[in-house]
Design a protein around this nucleic acid. Structure first.
Lengths: 181, 181
DNA sequence: AACCCGAAGTAGACAGTGTCTACATCAGTT
DNA sequence: AACTGATGTAGACACTGTCTACTTCGGGTT
């Protein structure tokens, strides 16, 4: 495995183990067994390396979409929604990195391609269900945002101090009921 | 105005002007006209200062809730939803700071109090509308997450590269229609 | 009045960060 | 054989947050 790929792999491992704050260029280099300047021979800077890591995250998200179980369009859409929230809760650091535009470069071609592919796939699932009053892609954007906010708010622990703490599954059920019920 | 309050005010101004990345402890001190070590006489560290700034953000959010126009419960809830997204889009840096748990301390008493008050206020608005099949607070959590995700996704520009770019107003309309329609 | 003491501010230091530059190594081409 | 470009190293620089002396100064106590 070349140094470039090992840097990406090492960064992914550090990310999963110690969180976004621990993913430092020098730390990655040390963990990969190279000097602190070596990463700059393969990436223009930290943003480009982390963008490559985030691209892997979006790719896994896309893979989950293509491996949905058979069933009615509605069942497939519901499974995709569960899958999105499940991915975020299982890989909190990766999920955070994927939407931290101060750490990654959203204009990175590979990253932009796979992230918009994720949206297009999702929009196709929404369109397949049908029965909407407006453009399915508009509904898809709204529903995706709802899922995204659910994951984000839950990871943030924003409701931890409130008087009422719902489970993410229960909140997701309400969300799906609102859109699909 | 005491130094402590001036530090908070200066930090808020820097945040609004130059974004989250520019809000550095030393930069705040310089802009406030004190030495780089002075802030530590009033705050235990960066997290405590930024938590105070974020608390002001949540307080403004709460103020918006208490100044909703008269009308039916449904109209008031709709106005609150618009207000939330509007706040996020108008104050992107503040909105980002308010949910960056690596920069602030969510357990800060004042911050935890006002943020959960925002949720409780919102849950009360949802409950006033009525007609839900489940606990209104559960619906409130789901709807809040939808609004939050909408603002977040829009600020992130995640759909900028996609083949279809909806306006935030249109997406919000779909969201409200799903929950209230 | 003399003393003290704690709060507030300053300046310096330290480790850590991303990035730049000079240098070394080494395989492949001409 | 000599050059060349890619790859890696080591050092430096400016910047960050935080810690630790050191000063300054105003208000109470004795």
């Amino acid at each position: 495995m070349g140094t470039r790929q090992r840097l990406i792999t090492t960064a992914s491992e550090l990310l999963a183990e110690d969180g976004v704050g621990a993913v430092t260029l020098r730390g990655i280099a040390k963990a990969a067994g190279v000097s602190h300047g070596a990463p700059l021979r393969h990436f223009s800077g930290r943003a480009e390396l982390l963008s490559a890591v985030a691209t892997q995250g979006f790719t896994e998200l896309l893979d989950r979409r293509t491996r949905l179980p058979d069933g009615t369009p509605r069942e497939r859409l519901s499974a995709a929604c569960h899958s999105y929230v499940d991915f975020a809760l299982r890989n909190p650091a990766m999920f955070e990195l994927m939407f931290r535009r101060d750490l990654i470069d959203p204009d990175e071609p590979a990253l932009a391609a796979v992230s918009s592919a994720v949206f297009d796939e999702f929009a196709a699932l929404v369109a397949a269900v049908g029965g909407h009053r407006t453009d399915p892609r508009l509904v898809a954007a709204s529903l995706w945002a709802a899922l995204h906010g659910l994951a984000q708010l839950w990871l943030w622990g924003g409701l931890a101090g409130a008087s009422f703490v719902p489970s993410p599954e229960a909140a997701l059920a309400v969300t799906l009921d609102a859109y699909l019920g």
